[in-house]
Write a protein that binds this DNA or RNA. Structure first.
Lengths: 204, 204
DNA sequence: GTCTATAATCAGATAGAC
DNA sequence: GTCTATCTGATTATAGAC
């Protein structure tokens, strides 16, 4: 093993570690305050580096947010990869939704305004993000159709609407509302939202 | 009828009309771009008055947004007042949810970031808004409990969680997602979300 | 109350030394 | 690559004439 190779590898490792630290910070700040309210100064101060250094890693605030989204997407893909492909698809869907809500309650689900156009443009141009989004959508879409075939999920609702409804649980304000009320712990909150999402509000 | 009284009343009427025009504009802009992305310059330009004039009517951008929220709240109260108090409470709840989603799809439901602290402070300090919010919550809460007593709504879920779930339909991103897809018209979109909300995703 | 013009501030981004 | 210091533009808010 050549010394130079080791050195480069080590430098690269340091580089990645620093960028990971940045992204984790961005992730938390995005979850706390959203994209517009999060300032680059704040990110730099929290990470403990100068703002100019931050811009050496990420060329814009939008790219910073996109990197956070990519990281979360990869975490979602990793989680989905642990789920069985043969078991009941409905259970898998429920597991994924539960996972996203746990992430949000843990303050690690970045919340982006669906309106901001410059941010949308950067995200849509990000291959990592789009690839991840498509893979996740494909897998969940397959489970949805399988669950519908099994008669476990309402066949009257198009699969795409089901998919969007599941995605929306990742940014459901009901989670925050119930948390602010202070009457329920995180597990209870998730169970409540799971119930309203899958069983509906009507009595059964 | 004294001339002076007439004159004052007319002036007051003009004043209100102008403020109503401002608020309508704010309402649309808030629905389109959200609070942070909406600029006061933009509001003034759209209304067709100078920015300084705007500040004579509303002391801050937050108050501008609060006025829009109050207007929507009053519209909600007016709508709720048209609903029967003796009929099936579940039908009333469904009507209100449908009304809020129609408003959102029409681009007239202002979307505020639940994170912005200065805006929250202004809203919480606004008596008109808080009174309206409480009245609406009381009425809907009563209907929810009545529907639960009738066995029409799931009794396992606390009324407060039901209430939050209904409120959340007013800012449900699934509406935008489905609209962007272009596969369904507004009526179909609302029916889909109504179905997932009340019947749930599981097959029945 | 409406306007033009301007203040004051803040935030994203960069220059240039090391 | 990291830093300090700065630029640049956008945005909220106000001064002062009419």
């Amino acid at each position: 093993m050549k010394p130079t190779a080791v050195k480069i590898s080590f430098k690269e490792q340091m580089h990645r570690a620093r960028e990971d630290a940045i992204i984790r910070t961005v992730n938390v700040l995005l979850a706390q305050k959203g994209f517009e309210a999060m300032t680059v100064d704040e990110v730099a101060a929290t990470v403990g580096i100068a703002k100019a250094s931050l811009y050496k890693h990420f060329p814009s605030k939008e790219d910073l947010a996109a990197a956070a989204m990519v990281q979360v997407m990869h975490r979602a893909q990793d989680y989905i990869a642990t789920l069985s492909t043969t078991d009941a698809p409905l259970d898998n869907l429920r597991s994924v939704v539960r996972w996203t809500m746990e992430l949000k309650l843990a303050g690690q689900m970045p919340s982006l305004p669906s309106q901001n156009s410059t941010l949308r443009a950067v995200l849509m141009a990000n291959k990592d993000y789009m690839d991840g989004l498509m893979e996740v959508s494909d897998v969940l879409g397959g489970w949805i159709e399988a669950a519908q075939s099994q008669g476990k999920v309402n066949k009257q609702v198009p699969a795409i609407a089901i998919l969007y409804t599941l995605f929306a649980r990742a940014c459901d304000p009901v989670l925050e509302f119930l948390k602010m009320g202070g009457m329920y712990d995180d597990a209870q909150i998730i169970n409540l939202v799971m119930a309203t999402c899958f069983d509906g509000l009507n009595a059964r």
